[in-house]
């Protein structure tokens, strides 16, 4: 359903195809290593927890020494090699994880209410504003949830869980009709 982008009762769920992903581990206190990575990426690596930067790629903070770099699939392998090579002299790990992740988009006025059914995070725009991301639970799966704009969220989920999460979202969105009091 809804790859056509049409809102489904106030919510649209779609798979963002053609995405590539890199997993980056390095010491955030190692200035030179960080600078090198930022130079290759052409954008800053977020140091603040639960945020992402948006330039040529999205760079999501996953942990104090771990990031997920999302970009177009065709560029992932080359960028990965370039990063790995540039970081060769530092203690760092670059892994192409394009095959391991699926990105979903949940958009619409009721997107937040649909996500709140299965996510214990406070998604109020004051608390979870665009530019923020969090690894958390959705339904019974672990996901990376990112606030793209006030009514759209990106969800990056491990490939093997993506079917479940997709079905979970469709089910959660189903009863959404005109009226609903969002939390």
């Amino acid at each position: 359903m809804s790859d056509n982008g049409l809102p489904l009762s106030g919510v649209a769920i779609s798979v963002r195809s053609g995405r590539g992903f890199l997993n980056l581990r390095l010491n955030p206190h190692h200035g030179q290593a960080v600078e090198t990575a930022e130079r290759v990426l052409g954008q800053p690596i977020p140091q603040a927890a639960n945020t992402f930067t948006n330039g040529g790629h999205e760079v999501y903070w996953l942990g104090p020494d771990e990031w997920l770099i999302a970009n177009v699939a065709e560029r992932a392998a080359a960028l990965g090699s370039e990063l790995a090579e540039a970081l060769g002299g530092f203690h760092a790990a670059v892994n192409d994880v394009s095959g391991g992740n699926v990105e979903l988009l949940v958009r619409g006025a009721e997107a937040r209410a649909v996500l709140a059914k299965g996510c214990a995070l406070d998604l109020h725009p004051r608390e979870f504003a665009p530019g923020q991301c969090a690894q958390t639970g959705l339904g019974r799966a672990a996901v990376l949830l990112a606030a793209v704009d006030p009514s759209s969220y990106a969800i990056v989920v491990r490939r093997s869980f993506s079917d479940y999460v997709h079905r979970w979202l469709e089910n959660a969105a189903r009863p959404h009709r005109a009226r609903f009091s969002a939390p």
């Binding site: 927890a49 639960n50 942990g63 104090p64 214990a120 995070l121 969090a134 690894q135 958390t136 639970g137």
Partner: peptide, 10 residues
């Protein structure tokens, strides 16, 4: 200590 307060299930 890194991500802030989260539900026990995480």
């Amino acid at each position: 200590p890194w991500c802030g307060p989260r539900a026990e299930t995480e």
